[in-house]
Deep mutational scan, measured.
Amino acid sequence: EDGINLEEIREFAKNFKIRRLSLGLTQTQVGQALTATEGPAYSQSAICRFEKLDITPKSAQKLKPVLEKWLNEAELRNQEGQQNLMEFVG
């Protein structure tokens, strides 16, 4: 629908959760960090719904690039050390 690749979103949601957990981050931490930079659309409950795919494809499509960018950045910081990650997450 609307050129939205559901399979891709499903895959990303699954990987997002795995990668988030491997960084040792909670949904709350991700939500707080993103709410600070991106606004309330990225709250803990939004992250939770995204991971469960309990949102419309359109919403998922909107969240995905922001979550992807944030997660990549978080992983980079983590490679530089846990301290850097925690500063990034705030």
Rank of each mutant, 00 (worst) to 15 (best):
R49V: 00
S43D: 15
I18D: 13
S43F: 06
I47K: 00
E7Q: 07
E38Y: 15
L6G: 07
N5S: 11
I18E: 14
R19T: 05
E51W: 02
I4W: 05
G3T: 13
L25R: 04
V30Q: 02
A36F: 06
I4N: 13
V30P: 06
Q44S: 14
L63W: 04
V66P: 03
V89A: 13
R19D: 01
P57C: 06
E51P: 01
K17H: 10
F12K: 01
F12D: 02
G39W: 00
R19A: 03
E80Y: 10
Q61Y: 08
L85P: 11
Q27S: 11
L53N: 11
E7A: 12
L76V: 13
C48Y: 06
E80P: 10
V30Y: 00
A46C: 08
K58C: 09
E87R: 11
Q29V: 03
P65Y: 03
V66T: 08
E51A: 01
G24M: 01
E51G: 02
Q32N: 12
E68T: 08
N15D: 14
A60G: 12
V89L: 11
A41Y: 10
I9P: 00
R77A: 14
F16M: 00
G39D: 06
I18K: 14
E7W: 02
A74R: 04
E68C: 01
P57D: 10
T35N: 09
A41W: 05
A46R: 04
N78D: 11
K17D: 08
Y42D: 02
Q27A: 11
A46T: 13
N72Q: 13
T26C: 00
L53P: 03
Q27R: 13
L53E: 06
Q27P: 10
L63S: 05
G90T: 12
K64L: 10
Q82D: 11
K52N: 13
D2C: 05
L85V: 10
P40S: 08
E87F: 01
T56E: 12
N15F: 07
S45L: 08
Q61C: 11
L6N: 12
M86F: 09
N84E: 11
M86G: 14
K69A: 09
T35Y: 07
G81M: 04
E73M: 11
G90W: 05
G81N: 09
D54S: 14
E87V: 01
F16W: 04
A36L: 07
Q82C: 06
R77H: 09
E38K: 09
G31I: 06
A46G: 02
K14D: 08
D54M: 08
A74W: 06
R19K: 07
E80C: 13
E51T: 02
S59Q: 15
R19G: 04
N84P: 12
N5M: 12
N72Y: 12
T37Y: 10
P40K: 13
V30L: 03
S45Y: 12
Q82Y: 07
N72W: 11
L23C: 03
D2H: 10
R19C: 09
E11R: 05
A46P: 08
W70M: 04
C48A: 15
R19I: 00
G39R: 00
Q61W: 08
L63V: 05
S59H: 15
S22F: 02
M86D: 14
L21N: 13
G31V: 11
Q29M: 06
C48S: 14
F16H: 00
E11T: 05
L85E: 10
G3S: 15
E38T: 06
G31Y: 05
R20K: 08
L76N: 09
K58E: 15
R49S: 14
Y42P: 03
L71R: 04
Q27M: 12
A46M: 13
K52L: 04
N78S: 15
G90R: 06
E11D: 07
S22T: 10
L63K: 01
K62E: 15
L23F: 00
N15V: 05
I4H: 04
L85C: 14
G81W: 02
K69M: 09
K64S: 00
P65T: 08
E68Q: 08
L53Q: 10
L53G: 15
N84I: 02
T56I: 00
R77E: 09
S22W: 08
E1Y: 06
L76T: 10
T56W: 01
A36R: 14
D54F: 13
N78Q: 10
G3Q: 15
A13I: 04
N72K: 12
L76C: 04
I4F: 14
Q32R: 13
R10N: 05
N15K: 14
F16D: 02
E75V: 03
K17G: 03
V30W: 02
E11P: 01
S22P: 01
L34D: 02
L25Q: 05
I55H: 05
I55G: 05
E1W: 05
Q29R: 02
F88Q: 15
L76E: 12
Q29L: 03
E73I: 08
N5Q: 10
S45F: 10
K69S: 10
Q82L: 07
G24A: 02
K52D: 13
I9Q: 06
E51C: 00
R20C: 08
M86A: 12
N5A: 07
Q27I: 13
E7G: 06
R77L: 09
V30F: 05
D54H: 03
N15R: 11
E38M: 15
Q29E: 10
G90Y: 13
I47D: 00
K58L: 10
A33C: 12
L67Q: 03
A36M: 11
R10G: 06
K58V: 10
F50T: 02
A74T: 10
E87W: 02
E8W: 02
K64W: 07
Q32M: 10
F16V: 03
N78H: 15
Y42S: 03
I9Y: 05
E80K: 04
D54V: 03
A33I: 10
K14M: 06
V30R: 02
I9H: 02
T35L: 11
E1S: 08
L23W: 05
N72A: 12
P40L: 07
I9T: 09
F88S: 13
L53V: 07
L21A: 02
E80D: 08
A74M: 11
L25F: 08
Q32I: 05
Q32K: 07
E7L: 04
E8I: 07
L53H: 07
K62F: 10
F50N: 12
K69F: 05
L63F: 11
G24K: 08
N15C: 04
V89Q: 13
P57W: 07
L25M: 04
Q79N: 15
Q44R: 13
V89G: 13
K62H: 06
G90L: 07
Y42E: 02
G81S: 12
E87Q: 09
T56V: 06
E1G: 01
E68Y: 03
A33E: 11
I18G: 07
E8P: 03
E8T: 09
I18S: 15
T26S: 11
K62R: 11
E73F: 09
Q32A: 14
V89I: 14
K17F: 00
A33W: 12
D2R: 13
M86W: 10
G31E: 06
S43H: 05
E68S: 09
K52M: 05
S59R: 13
K62P: 01
P65N: 06
T28S: 14
T37Q: 14
R20N: 00
V89T: 12
F50L: 10
E8A: 08
M86E: 14
K64R: 11
D2Y: 14
E7Y: 05
D2W: 04
G90V: 02
T56F: 02
I18N: 11
T37G: 04
F16G: 02
R10K: 14
E8N: 14
I55M: 15
A41E: 15
E75M: 00
L34R: 02
A60W: 08
P40A: 10
E75H: 01
E1I: 14
R19Q: 02
T37E: 10
Q79K: 14
